[in-house]
Design a protein around this nucleic acid. Structure first.
Length: 271
DNA sequence: CCCGGAACCTGAAGGC
DNA sequence: TGCCTTCAGGTTCCGG
């Protein structure tokens, strides 16, 4: 599911294996996983090079190399990393393997095959077009107000638009709107100042809480050591259609297919 | 420019 | 039990 909290967790937990270590080779087992270059071209740039740092931007995991190149990884729906040493067989659905200098291997496992690797430069357009990091100092209440004021589209697709705010996905968007008591179809520019303030607080709260709980393992998300996260245990509406509203308003959680995404909300307390 | 829908894929879950 | 349908966290492209 990798949204911001899951990618942040993956980054934090892969760091000990990656930072300062050298890549021996990257194997691409499912060629479409690698965008923009061939496996051979990729290895000409990364094999034998040191990973100076592992970072995250929005939902991208970023390997930085000592020659200035970066490797962007997007997990899409079902991608995850498994860090293992000396496995005889790659885990099922492995699409790529990053072999490191100390015999540790990072297996990129992705059943639905949507995940992507891309070799790039740090000034790549892919990163430049992303909106602000919602947990950074640059993302202020004022900044959020400006983003919303310019948009008459419904609030939910605005939260999901990576060019406006980077990192929020479908599940956290529903949780954030529920906590803010804002209906997902409300035009973004119709929010009152008090609602914008509440939304700002709940965006940061939801993402921080997701990181603290090491991500949400609703379906296929696993941490690099194989453990699950626990953020989904604190979810109040996502994937809970028919259950009573946890706010105690006597309403029931509704499911609606809205703008191409499953959307969960309480019609009686989100306005 | 905005929007809806399809495409990219597999596999789990639910209905019958 | 087994077959068929539906649905899934993300992004991108195409057409109206």
């Amino acid at each position: 599911m990798p949204e911001l909290p899951e990618v942040e967790t993956i980054k934090n937990e892969l760091k000990p294996y990656a930072d300062g270590h050298t890549v021996k080779k990257i194997d691409i087992l499912w060629p479409p996983t690698l965008r923009g270059s061939t496996e051979k071209e990729l290895n000409e740039k990364v094999a034998g090079h040191r990973i100076t740092e592992l970072t995250r931007r929005g939902k991208y995991l970023i390997f930085h190399f000592d020659n200035g190149k970066i490797l962007l990884v997007h997990h899409k729906l079902t991608g995850s990393f498994h860090a293992e040493a000396n496995l005889k067989e790659p885990p099922k659905n492995t699409r790529a393997i990053i072999h490191l200098d100390d015999c540790m291997d990072l297996y990129f496992v992705d059943p639905r095959r949507f995940g992507r690797f891309e070799l790039a430069d740090p000034d790549t357009e892919t990163l430049k077009k992303l909106g602000p990091e919602p947990l950074s100092r640059q993302f202020t209440e004022k900044r959020l107000a400006e983003i919303l004021a310019k948009r008459k589209s419904p609030i939910k697709p605005v939260l999901l638009n990576q060019e406006l705010i980077a990192g929020i996905g479908n599940l956290y968007a529903d949780e954030i709107l529920f906590a803010s008591r804002i209906h997902p179809e409300r035009p973004a520019n119709s929010l009152t100042p008090a609602e914008v303030k509440k939304l700002y607080t709940e965006i940061r709260r939801a993402l921080r809480n997701g990181i603290k709980r090491k991500g949400a393992s609703i379906a296929t998300y696993y941490r690099p050591g194989g453990e699950k996260g626990s953020a989904h245990l604190a979810f109040r509406v996502a994937r809970k259609a028919g259950e009573p509203c946890p706010q105690g308003c006597k309403g029931k959680i509704s499911y609606k297919f809205f703008r191409g995404r499953g959307t969960y909300f309480c019609p009686s307390c989100q306005h």
